[in-house]
Write a protein that binds this DNA or RNA. Structure first.
Lengths: 241, 241
DNA sequence: AATCAATTTATTGTTGACAATATAGGTATT
DNA sequence: AATACCTATATTGTCAACAATAAATTGATT
């Protein structure tokens, strides 16, 4: 136990912002649903003031959309918008890898390997479901952008795009068919980073994400045959990068 | 004259957000300075409620930084942070060009040319100062990302990075030495877009911005000789892209 | 029965007051 | 004189009430 009254460093708006963000990206608050201020303020036991501030910050993450005199509603991403995100993500994470390859130490690469190994074990112990359901694959991408050392890049990916990706995954209940291929690609990326080959690391990551985007274009188009074909064509690559 | 009382579609927080953003990126509110709520609320004639909401939205644009129980302060970018922005901008605008090349119509390219011509005339009539002082060069980049059709990309560049660039320019009172070279590069980029050569357009834009970043590394390092050398090496390229 | 208008209800926008925290200033002590 | 502590001031955080707008309901008319 700690001392009972430590001076709190966070504000109510901060706390409810975190809680709301989690509630949104986990689907607890349905995509497209309206954000009702009186209801939420009662639910979280705070007044509307800090709640509204939290909502304004959620708007900054692009998780809700505001309209004057109408209120906020949780974003709902269609496939087109998801593809736009993947296009942006491809170049940003390519940059991540290029920078990471130039800066990563031996210990950093060890951490990357450990992360992949750990994920592989989780996969084997749960038939490949838990890893992606629990967003474990994002950990890998998350660590790389950290290693890049570019804080602006980190902010854009981890402060915005990854949350939107999680939202889209829960929204579409999408799960990759076979993560095995994704693991291989991940290891190849670490290989390149380990060798300090930024160009190759960038290329591999961009290809990795481009493959995932390609799956989006077909798998979720409602055309089952096209989806199967794309899956074959991409050699069982992960659907979500 | 219009009818005196049209139903207003914007809220106080929206208006003061726009005004504050302009005040920040023009340097009217100094970088690094503290944001005083009582003062600003009096200055803009509103209460602290909507003002605080506007500040939270400014935080979303990364124009202010918030600390609990202390308040907001306007961001102040150092060279390292500016370089990070340029690294991100390089790949994002490269993507802009690649996509724009695939989608731009003949009319779109005409608009790009007109914009460049217009800017060139402004330069000649004002010794090259007004164009960059008034951020006219960003118009060019702005239009290209619009043509890309990727709204997420547009949001990231025009909703965040460009504002930060303006802030950095006013903060460092930086002006490119000779925009002539930048114009040539701009025209070459339009050439590639016009020919539908996305790869080339991407390459040229990335190089264009990489050159500007390189100027940053040297011109503002306090080492005048290094700055001059870099300027020669980059063949009088614009300093700010 | 359907459509439009008026009324009611609910939600958002805004305000001023109060509480909690941090900052500034002053006093005493070493 | 410098530091630590206490006090006073200012600023931020939070709340509840009021105003303005939008949404829902009711009723009248065709």
């Amino acid at each position: 136990m700690e001392s009972p009254s430590q001076p709190k460093t966070s504000t109510l708006a901060d706390d409810v912002f975190d809680q709301l963000r989690i509630a949104i990206v986990t689907g607890e608050i349905a995509p497209g649903s309206k954000v009702n201020e009186p209801q939420l303020s009662k639910q979280y036991g705070i007044s509307r003031g800090p709640l509204r501030e939290a909502i304004r910050r959620l708007e900054g993450c692009k998780l809700v959309e505001l309209k004057a005199n109408v209120g906020a509603k949780v974003v709902s991403l269609n496939r087109e918008q998801a593809i736009e995100i993947y296009e942006v993500r491809e170049v940003l994470e390519g940059l991540s890898c290029r920078l990471a390859a130039a800066k990563a130490s031996t210990e950093d690469c060890t951490r990357l390997r450990e992360l992949l190994t750990q994920h592989e074990q989780q996969i084997q112990s749960d038939n490949g479901r838990r890893y992606f359901q629990k967003e474990g694959d994002l950990d890998f991408h998350y660590l790389i952008v950290q290693l890049s050392g570019n804080k602006r890049l980190f902010s854009m990916l981890c402060g915005e795009l990854y949350h939107l990706l999680r939202l889209y995954r829960v929204q579409t209940s999408s799960e990759p068919s076979r993560p095995v291929r994704a693991f291989k690609e991940h290891h190849h990326i670490v290989d390149a980073i380990e060798q300090g080959d930024g160009e190759l690391a960038e290329l591999l990551m961009k290809r990795h994400i481009a493959n995932a985007r390609q799956m989006l274009l077909t798998t979720l188009s409602g055309d089952a045959d096209a989806a199967d074909m794309a899956q074959e064509a991409s050699s069982d690559r992960s659907a979500m990068g």
